[in-house]
């Protein structure tokens, strides 16, 4: 069953870089797995850890937070605050038993369509063998 599982990834993409990067992938007709539910946010710094937990709670198998590279954030340093917060969440989730692969973070610029597709492809490959995420998922 595990090998059949098609993981669902919720991706919080900042409007100015990563979301534009995913658009770039689209316009450039790069192919990547359709497992992503993209959610555009204004900045990676606006992503509360609660959003990520909530995504897992509502059934995500993996969650991605992606923002502009350091120095490129549209709001100057939103991504730097995000980096701190996410570092702690990244430590906390495996501590309670969630596979570390399930939560990832990346910097993707508006030009990096290719990088975006690679991240998604690899993410899906990493999630497949893990099967569905059940630990934080509501109603089992």
């Amino acid at each position: 069953m595990n090998s059949e599982h098609e993981p669902r990834i919720v991706a919080f993409l900042c409007k100015w870089c990563s979301s534009a990067g995913s658009d770039m992938a689209g316009v450039s007709r790069l192919e990547y797995p359709p497992n992503v539910i993209p959610i555009t946010v204004m900045c990676s710094g606006s992503v509360s850890p609660l959003y990520i937990l909530s995504a897992f709670n509502l059934g995500a198998d993996g969650v991605l937070v992606s923002g502009c590279h350091p120095g490129d954030c549209h709001y100057i340093k939103g991504n730097m605050y995000a980096r701190r917060r996410m570092a702690l969440l990244k430590e906390l989730l495996p501590y309670i038993g969630l596979e570390p692969e399930r939560f990832q973070m990346s910097w993707v610029s508006a030009a990096e369509g290719l990088k975006f597709t690679q991240i998604i492809k690899e993410f899906v490959e990493q999630l497949k063998p893990l099967g569905p995420q059940t630990q934080l998922r509501r109603y089992l």
Partner: peptide
């Protein structure tokens, strides 16, 4: 107090 919700509560709290 479902298991999943308890987990989320405690994670939110800790963070």
């Amino acid at each position: 107090p479902l298991l999943s919700e308890n987990f989320v509560y405690h994670l939110v709290r800790a963070i």
